[in-house]
Design a protein around this nucleic acid. Structure first.
Lengths: 250, 250
DNA sequence: GCCGATTTGTCCGTATGTATC
DNA sequence: CGATACATACGGACAAATCGG
């Protein structure tokens, strides 16, 4: 499958930025130069730059050029950042992942679960509880709720390997949008039982609702992270237009 | 100042979605219909839809249409979400903000501060420590470092009102990009002194590096939030292209 | 300060590809 | 198979910001 042209340019520029072919604070070649370099239209170059901007890699400046503002991050903790699976995050963080299934049951949604998960009352779900370890160290406790109608055939064995490989590969589900909320919550007895929390009495909790390409929510997940191995990254770009908001907390 | 055309369409569609002119899970009018409605080109409509997609409001489906997946959020805690100032967040959360300046000093960057903040050694900064309250309840402890060269003239009085109003209004600085990292850290003595933490021994911490429109970092801030009043929201969209990553932790 | 060259920002019309129905 | 809808790409036009002479 041939990638889209803008995606090729995006990845190429991204690598050049990461490997400092363009130095920090340096200008990238102008759009017109890139057009001739890549042999494409200006719109295509602009689309690639737009993606780099969203990644926080570059900053276009009207009338001046596009500046590289990428800074490599030191990798101390387990970085959660963008969109990727547990296994992929582990690889990027250069650690060995391991998953242990603690529970695997089927449940029917009641009012209480409906409010929390967004699934309607009466819906049938798989409920899975999993312990995630990196380099043998248990760090994350996951509570997954999968819509049975779309994910029928799930087993504990699949849950131990990769649910998403199964859903995408076998079931043909395409994951598109994920709404996430990050909070800090008190530890539970289950947290304490499986994770080495020392004297921490809080957990970093990511709850996410995930949709397929039909706009159907097929998953609700609560990921409870050990706080000292947790890091979430984000790039916020200011919206243009007059009468706009400004930045974060100042 | 006349808005850009795509921005007008974006805001118009956004409002229609929020007021449920288009119901949840309903399809928006097709791009071609919108083209005739707004009297513009298809590219312009597509740009507006792209922004709504990034906001997690809609989900375009190849060959089918664009589905509304917007759900209003219940406002329990203090939601941090997108890009906005403390004051604006307070207003959106329907609370009364108050800021107390605890410290206001000038410092010079040493190696230790350089590593943490990204400012070069020898640079002169303003260091401000502020306590943020909502409805009289102290919730956030801010540590700000501002590049003196760009923010010269800051005073404790300004810090008590709004630093950003001063920087944007008086100094003519334009805020563009903000890189944020969210972690969970242990409480400090200062946290305990000013915030009512009960028995929590952790804080939700947002550290951010903010850049102006010249790509110059002029701010480093650490915002320490009381955990039980903290909530961070995010929408992750899956990248297209073959051989791609999938979603969050499953 | 003015003017022209450069560069990014916005918008248009069109063509073609691909997925859905 | 054809009609519809979104996805990608092209080329051109003009506006707005910047910079140098």
């Amino acid at each position: 499958m041939p990638r889209a042209k803008y995606d090729h340019i995006y990845k190429d520029l991204k690598e050049k930025i990461e490997t400092e072919v363009y130095a920090y604070q340096e200008m990238l070649p102008s759009e017109n130069v890139l057009v001739t370099e890549y042999g494409c239209s200006r719109n295509t170059v602009r689309r690639a730059i737009a993606e780099l901007t969203a990644d926080g890699y570059v900053q276009p400046m009207h009338g001046k050029g596009v500046r590289n503002i990428f800074r490599p991050v030191e990798q101390t903790a387990f970085i959660v950042g963008g969109i990727e699976s547990f296994k992929e995050s582990a690889i990027r963080n250069k650690k060995t992942p391991y998953t242990k299934v603690l529970q695997f049951t089927e449940i029917t949604v009641d009012e209480k679960i409906e409010r929390r998960t967004g699934f309607k009352k009466g819906t049938e779900l798989y409920y899975i509880q999993r312990l995630r370890s990196l380099d043998g160290k248990p760090l994350i406790l996951d509570h997954n709720y999968f819509l049975k109608e779309l994910t029928y055939g799930l087993t504990p064995e699949i849950a131990e390997r990769s649910v998403y490989d199964y859903l995408e590969g076998v079931k043909g589900i395409t994951i598109t949008t994920s709404k996430r909320t990050l909070t800090v919550e008190r530890v539970t007895q289950v947290d304490e039982k499986y994770l080495d929390l020392r004297d921490y009495n809080c957990m970093a909790v990511i709850t996410s609702q995930t949709f397929d390409d039909n706009g159907i929510q097929f998953e609700y997940t609560q990921s409870r992270h050990r706080p000292d191995y947790f890091r979430f990254q984000d790039v916020a770009t200011r919206r243009k237009g007059p009468g706009e908001k400004h930045a974060v907390f100042s």
